[in-house]
């Protein structure tokens, strides 16, 4: 057998160690979360969060609906806020790269990616929760949109930048206005990149708890009113994770499973498929 250099061996070992540990995390979510989801079945997605067993005895129905609905609603509103801003800024950064505004926007977006998400949460607490005197789903959405904007902007810029100048000029030379070239003709070319950015931003936002703790608040009941407080899966994992109640710990695992395997994983898989389908 060929001798393997100890350095290479070390690389293999460390890589497998890292991968093994990371897979362990995924495996643990699966092993602990899936059985809970299967056990409660549909009611987990439709019923309200049970009150503490300690006070009220075993609940008739056990569900995570308020957290699931909350996460979906908060993230969706965050998308409505962040997509137009991020998309327009991204096109600006790519196509008018020579303007001062574009340069500044690119710089700021690359800084925003690295701002700790708890900072966004506390900032929105002061900016929205204090003046409105209460937690609300929409405050959580604004906090998450701060996290999503730079991803959407930078991915959009990259998508437009990747289109060769020559192809843009091909459109212009036909007498088609620049805006139509950018938004209509190139749509099919940039869509995979832009959609990937949106999906990645959604995946990041869906898992965030820190920006929601002091903005969106909490609710045990399903609420579709964005101006009312709302639960979310990520905050539920944190809140219930520290409890001493068996049921709540189980719900934290179930929420982890739903968050990772039913929301984030599909988003990432779709983003991969979108890119693959559009390759020439």
């Amino acid at each position: 057998m060929r001798k393997v250099h100890p350095g290479i061996l070390a690389i293999y070992l460390l890589s497998f160690l890292a991968l093994g540990l990371l897979l362990w995390v995924l495996g643990a979510i699966l092993v602990n979360g899936l059985p809970v989801v299967l056990h409660y079945g549909v009611q987990l997605f439709t019923a309200n969060i049970p009150p503490p067993v300690f006070f009220f005895g075993p609940p008739p129905e056990v569900g995570l609906a308020p957290a699931i609905v909350g996460t979906l609603m908060i993230v969706f509103i965050a998308l409505l806020i962040s997509f137009p801003i991020g998309f327009l800024a991204g096109v600006l950064i790519s196509e008018f790269y020579y303007t001062r505004l574009a340069k500044a926007a690119e710089h700021v977006a690359s800084l925003l990616v690295e701002v700790p998400t708890i900072a966004a949460g506390i900032a929105i607490y002061w900016l929205i929760v204090v003046p409105t005197q209460g937690f609300s789903a929409i405050a959580g959405s604004v906090a998450l949109s701060l996290i999503m904007i730079p991803y959407i902007a930078l991915y959009t810029a990259e998508a437009y930048r990747k289109v060769p100048k020559l192809i843009k000029e091909g459109g212009l030379a036909l007498g088609i206005p620049y805006s139509k070239v950018l938004f209509k003709i190139l749509r099919g070319l940039v869509a995979p990149g832009v959609i990937t950015g949106v999906l990645i931003a959604l995946a990041k936002a869906a898992g965030e708890a820190a920006p929601l703790l002091f903005t969106a608040g909490w609710s045990n009941k399903v609420s579709l009113d964005p101006f009312q407080p709302s639960a979310s899966l990520s905050v539920l994992i944190y809140k219930f994770g520290f409890s001493s109640q068996e049921l709540w710990l189980k719900l934290s695992w179930a929420a982890s499973f739903i968050l990772v395997f039913m929301i984030i994983l599909p988003l990432i898989i779709i983003s991969k498929l979108v890119v693959r389908k559009h390759e020439f």
Partner: peptide, 19 residues
């Protein structure tokens, strides 16, 4: 497009100013 650019700049103030 400038609206988007300005709002991205605003985003950093939305974080920093209240803090």
């Amino acid at each position: 497009l400038g609206i988007g650019g300005v709002l991205v700049l605003a985003a950093i103030f939305v974080v920093l100013f209240p803090l």
